[in-house]
Write a protein that binds this DNA or RNA. Structure first.
Length: 266
DNA sequence: ACCCAGGGTAACT
DNA sequence: AGTTACCATGGG
């Protein structure tokens, strides 16, 4: 059956969550209809004043999207906890609808390999061309390619993507994933440290990219990705170290801070 | 022409 | 263990 499905929540803002820089395959039209592909499935949805509504969705797909949007996590409680730190209170207050998605590991891995020394609009363009070139057709768009498909590609085949020096990193990640030299599926059950060690077996994956994958795919909220923006924030506001109230949710705090300071002056 | 972008690697002290 | 040039590409 095809229908609409609404969720009441005050902690899910689609613009903040889908187009803030943790995912790169979502967009919205003039009518405020968001659309994107994850897990090989296309979704259209809209923002409501009291929540969101999935559009034209099959009932059997609803659980996977609830998982994707991390609806099981109590963001209100985490935001309350963060209010003990004034900077974090302001950042979370401005981004109350920002959630950490639970994305596909391989897609997240390749996406953040591409993100290094790059900017968000250009990252989106490269990933879009990657999907059009190597992904399966999905509706009027393309799914993110499987590791096996990319593993059989060559650097010459990747060059039209204009990913530059990242081509060899993409191929190393795809090949090690396809061969099982890196066990992406196993990281769900690993500790943060074990998962990080596993991801860093890939050439082109360092601390920051690994932290992004651990946070945005595996929801390991201890991860605190140190990008150029966050380095400035930490240097200015937390030179003595991160506040206690972040606890085991440093990654969620990082997202609030990233969004807050990236939007300053806009 | 120069600098920067959700960095990492390799080659240096 | 801690710096630094270099890595493609495109926008400001």
């Amino acid at each position: 059956m095809i229908k609409e499905y609404s969720i009441k929540t005050d902690t899910l803002n689609l613009l903040q969550t889908l187009e803030g820089g943790q995912a790169f395959r979502w967009s919205h039209d003039d009518n405020g209809i968001f659309s994107g592909i994850a897990g090989g499935r296309l979704l259209k949805l809209r923002q409501d004043s009291d929540g969101i509504t999935f559009l034209d969705i099959q009932e059997e797909d609803i659980p996977r999207w609830l998982e994707y949007f991390d609806m099981q996590t109590d963001y209100g409680g985490i935001i309350d906890r963060f209010s003990a730190d004034e900077t974090l209170r302001l950042a979370a207050g401005e981004n109350r609808g920002l959630r950490i998605l639970r994305q596909e590991p391989f897609e997240t891995l390749i996406s953040f390999i591409i993100s290094q020394n790059n900017n968000i609009p250009r990252i989106k363009g490269i990933i879009s061309r990657l999907c059009e070139t190597f992904g399966e057709k999905c509706g009027d768009s393309y799914a993110f390619p499987e590791a096996k498909r990319l593993a059989s590609a060559t650097e010459e085949e990747l060059s039209p993507l204009r990913a530059g020096f990242r081509n060899r990193y993409i191929l190393d990640a795809a090949r090690k994933t396809a061969e099982g030299a890196v066990n992406l599926g196993g990281i769900y059950d690993m500790t943060y440290d074990e998962g990080k060690e596993e991801l860093k077996k890939i050439v082109g994956v360092g601390d920051k990219v690994a932290d992004c994958v651990l946070l945005f795919a595996y929801h390991k909220t201890e991860a605190f990705p140190m990008d150029v923006w966050i380095k400035r924030v930490v240097a200015e506001y937390y030179p003595e170290g991160l506040p206690e109230c972040m606890g085991e949710y440093k990654g969620i705090a990082q997202q609030y801070l990233f969004e807050y300071f990236r939007n300053q002056g806009k």
